[in-house]
């Protein structure tokens, strides 16, 4: 068991059969390989990011991990349990949050949904009270308990959903796009909470996202999935290296100037950055994601009439696109 991992997948596949009308009577059958042979292990207490563009197969993986979808092939175990065979037994040990779907009672105050969890998971009274108190405090839900769920903002609802998923002390928490559509403050609160949950309680966390910032702030390990295949499994820094990803420096100059050129600092023949786009006084300058931005900014400020600047992180689509380019 020891090296088997708390969550373990071996060549897991999910193939959907999609029927489509083609012409009057003919029906076309098409196979969608949503998850196409994925293997990984997650140890107890790890916090792992599962990222990939839309349609990559993230949600399908999560659904198989909860048991609401049966794999078409491969072997999958969570805490030693085959999820699709023993969905109900597993449900007592895991927590799930689907970003775009709520498990809360729409027309009733948040507190009623929690009462329901209390009974549904048969949580001992004291345990329930303690956990609720803790979630209310850390997720800032105090004012919201008596508010009907339909009146909550998306960010408030998401916090409410996360609390609902944790009242029964799950050993592992899956979050499917927990920050999608959230405002900056809610995003920060959710991230902070997950960090503490993982650090203090040792809850294993697997979260899907297409926002690299989530991963940057939360996960030491990241898995990249695209077209149902695992493209990368390792640290975030390593991902930038593999993807040869670039960050973007957007500078506003006092006037329109020819593209900025900076030679490599250590005298190599690779320039330190390259101008990707020039639009009037604004220039977009790409540089390797692993390089530090500060010395570049200092050198630009010394040589050019700099008015304003911002740094953009690479987005996941760009990282994956470059990954394809580098591994033919």
């Amino acid at each position: 068991m020891a090296d088997d991992g708390f969550i373990s997948l071996d060549g897991v596949e999910k193939v959907f059969e999609v029927r489509r009308r083609a012409g009057l009577l003919r029906r076309e059958r098409r196979e969608v390989r949503a998850v196409d042979g994925i293997s990984f292990r997650v140890a107890r207490g790890e916090m792992v990011g599962y990222i990939g563009p839309n349609g990559a197969g993230k949600s399908t993986t999560i659904k198989m991990l909860t048991g609401i979808l049966t794999p078409s092939g491969g072997r999958l175990r969570v805490a030693g349990i085959d999820p699709s065979r023993e969905r109900t037994r597993l449900a007592h040990r895991i927590g799930v949050v689907f970003g775009q779907r709520t498990t809360l009672w729409w027309d009733l105050p948040l507190r009623d949904s929690y009462r329901l969890m209390h009974r549904m998971y048969r949580i001992p009274d004291r345990r329930y009270r303690e956990n609720l108190e803790r979630c209310v405090e850390l997720l800032d839900l105090g004012e919201l308990l008596e508010v009907p769920v339909r009146q909550l903002s998306l960010g408030q609802r998401m916090r409410g959903d996360i609390a609902a998923a944790l009242l029964h002390d799950p050993e592992v928490l899956y979050l499917d796009e927990p920050t999608i559509g959230l405002d900056v403050i809610s995003k920060a609160k959710v991230r902070q909470f997950l960090k503490e949950l993982n650090a203090e309680r040792g809850t294993t966390v697997l979260l899907t996202t297409h926002d690299l910032t989530d991963i940057e702030q939360l996960c030491s390990r990241v898995m990249v999935i695209d077209h149902g295949r695992l493209m990368y499994d390792g640290s975030l820094a390593g991902l930038h290296e593999v993807g040869e990803s670039e960050r973007m420096l957007v500078v506003d100059l006092e006037s329109e100037l020819p593209p900025i050129r900076l030679d490599s600092a250590d005298g190599g023949d690779q320039p330190a950055l390259r101008a990707v786009k020039v639009e009037g006084p604004r220039q977009w300058l790409a540089f390797p994601a692993a390089a530090s931005a500060a010395p570049l900014v200092a050198r630009i400020a010394a040589d050019y009439p700099l008015v304003d600047l911002s740094v953009r992180e690479p987005d996941i689509e760009a990282v994956i696109a470059r990954m394809y380019e580098s591994t033919p």
């Binding site: 909860t66 609401i68 969905r87 549904m120």
Partner: peptide
């Protein structure tokens, strides 16, 4: 497809 969420509950 929200029904999937309902199925996951132990009820």
């Amino acid at each position: 497809g929200d029904i999937a969420v309902d199925l996951y509950r132990p009820a």
